[in-house]
C-alpha cells in the first residue's frame, strides 16, 4: 500500500520548497509551516487546490503567488469538489492521451471552517465517490480569515468573536466535532491526525495520504497565534502540548483500523506522561477566562471530555 520512502532531516531541508516564502501569513502561523512541510512530502507532479481561508488568502494575492505547483481556488465550501473535477479530468485526459502518462497527485487544503462546517457536504461526497486525492484539514480551530469566529472545530471553552467569553457564558459551550472519526466512518482507505511539532510523523503521513489509492484525509493541528491569543514563538510547542495532553492524539486509520502513532503510543504505554489540559490551556489567551474562579469548572469538564475521548481511542486501537 505504501512505498518504503525514508528521509533524513537533511533530505527535507535540501528538498526545494514548493510553497515559497513571501506569503502574508502572520508571524508564528503554524498553518503556513504545515503547508511547507507537506510540500516536502510530494513524490512527483502535483496539483493543489484550496478552500477560501487564511492560507488561500495569504499565499495568492494577485499578482503574487507562493505556489510553485499548479494551484486553483474557487470558493469556500467546495474544495473537495475542486479535487473531484481535477482528478476526473486527469484520469480521462490521460486515457485519451492528451496529457503525459505520468501520475499526477491532487492535494486539497481547507481550514476547519471549510471542513467541519460549510465544506462537509462536498468532502463527504468526494470521499464516498472514492476520488484519488489527499485532503488536508489545517485546523486552527476557528474562522481566522474573517476574524476568529467559532466553527464546529473550535474547542469547548474557547473564546471567539461569535462565542465570546462574557460575564455569564464561558466561551464556546459545545465540544469539538470528531471530524477525523467521521471521515474514518466513510470507510476510506487512509485517515490520520498530525501536528507540526512531530514534523517527521506529519511528512510521513502526508506521503502516505498521497500514495494511497483513493481518498485520504489528514487532520493537522495548526495553532494560530493571532486567533488563539498565544505567543508567536509558542505555536509549535502548543502543538506538542496538544498531543501530550491527549487533547489531540496522533493516530492513523488504515482501511478503518486505528493505530496510535508513536508520540501518543508512548503516552498510552506510560500514562504518567499524560499532561494535564491546564498546561495546554494556560498558554492561550482564548482560554484565559477559564482561569478565574467563576469559570474554572469548565477546565474540569474539558479534562473529563479529553479523558473520555482518549479512552475511547485506546479501545479503538485495541489498547487498554
Amino acid at each position: 500500500m505504501f512505498s518504503e520512502w525514508k528521509f533524513t532531516a537533511k533530505d527535507i531541508a535540501e528538498k526545494p520548497d514548493l510553497f515559497m516564502s513571501g506569503h502574508r501569513a502572520c508571524a508564528g502561523c503554524a498553518p503556513a509551516t504545515v503547508l511547507r512541510l507537506i510540500m516536502k512530502a510530494l513524490r512527483g507532479p502535483t496539483i493543489t487546490t484550496f478552500a477560501t481561508g487564511c492560507m488561500e488568502v495569504v499565499s495568492t494575492i494577485y499578482p503574487y503567488t507562493s505556489w510553485k505547483i499548479p494551484y486553483i481556488h474557487t470558493a469556500f465550501e467546495n474544495v473537495a469538489a475542486n479535487a473531484s473535477g481535477i482528478e476526473a479530468a486527469l484520469k480521462i485526459l490521460k486515457k485519451k492521451g492528451r496529457i503525459p502518462q505520468e501520475h499526477v497527485d491532487v492535494i486539497a487544503f481547507a481550514g476547519d471552517g471549510g471542513t467541519y462546517d460549510i465544506g462537509i457536504q462536498a468532502l463527504s461526497g468526494a470521499v464516498e465517490r472514492g476520488h484519488d486525492f489527499l485532503y488536508v484539514l489545517y485546523d486552527n480551530e476557528a474562522y481566522m480569515n474573517t476574524g476568529i469566529q467559532r466553527s464546529g472545530g473550535t474547542p469547548h471553552g474557547a473564546s471567539t468573536t461569535t462565542s465570546p467569553a462574557g460575564t455569564v457564558i464561558p466561551g464556546k459551550l459545545e465540544n469539538k466535532k470528531p471530524i477525523a472519526d467521521i471521515m474514518v466512518a466513510h470507510d476510506m482507505p487512509y485517515a490520520a491526525t498530525a501536528a507540526p511539532y512531530y514534523w517527521r510523523d506529519l511528512i510521513t503521513k502526508a506521503r502516505k495520504g498521497i500514495e494511497v489509492n483513493g481518498p485520504a484525509f489528514l487532520h493537522v493541528f495548526a495553532p494560530c497565534p493571532r486567533g488563539w491569543r498565544s505567543d508567536i514563538s509558542k505555536s509549535i510547542e502548543i502543538s506538542r502540548l496538544a498531543v501530550e495532553t491527549c487533547i489531540f492524539p496522533l493516530w492513523e486509520a488504515i482501511n478503518g483500523e486505528y493505530q496510535l502513532s508513536a508520540p501518543s503510543k508512548v503516552i498510552a504505554l506510560r500514562p504518567e506522561r499524560k499532561k494535564s489540559v491546564r498546561e495546554y490551556l494556560q498558554l492561550q489567551g482564548r482560554f484565559r477566562h477559564l482561569f478565574t474562579s467563576k469559570f474554572e469548572k469548565v477546565i474540569d469538564e474539558i479534562q473529563r471530555t479529553t479523558d473520555g475521548r482518549w479512552q475511547r481511542l485506546l479501545k479503538k486501537c485495541n489498547i487498554a
Partner: peptide, 27 residues
C-alpha cells in the same frame, strides 16, 4: 469516453466542471 462524476449537489457539479475545465478537459 467520459468521466461521469455523479456528484452530491449542483454546487459540486458546477465546481467539478469548473476545475475539470481548468485542468484542460471539456466539461
Amino acid at each position: 469516453d467520459t468521466e461521469f462524476v455523479c456528484v452530491e449537489s449542483e454546487h459540486s457539479a458546477l465546481t467539478a466542471c469548473l476545475t475539470a475545465a481548468a485542468t484542460g478537459a471539456r466539461a
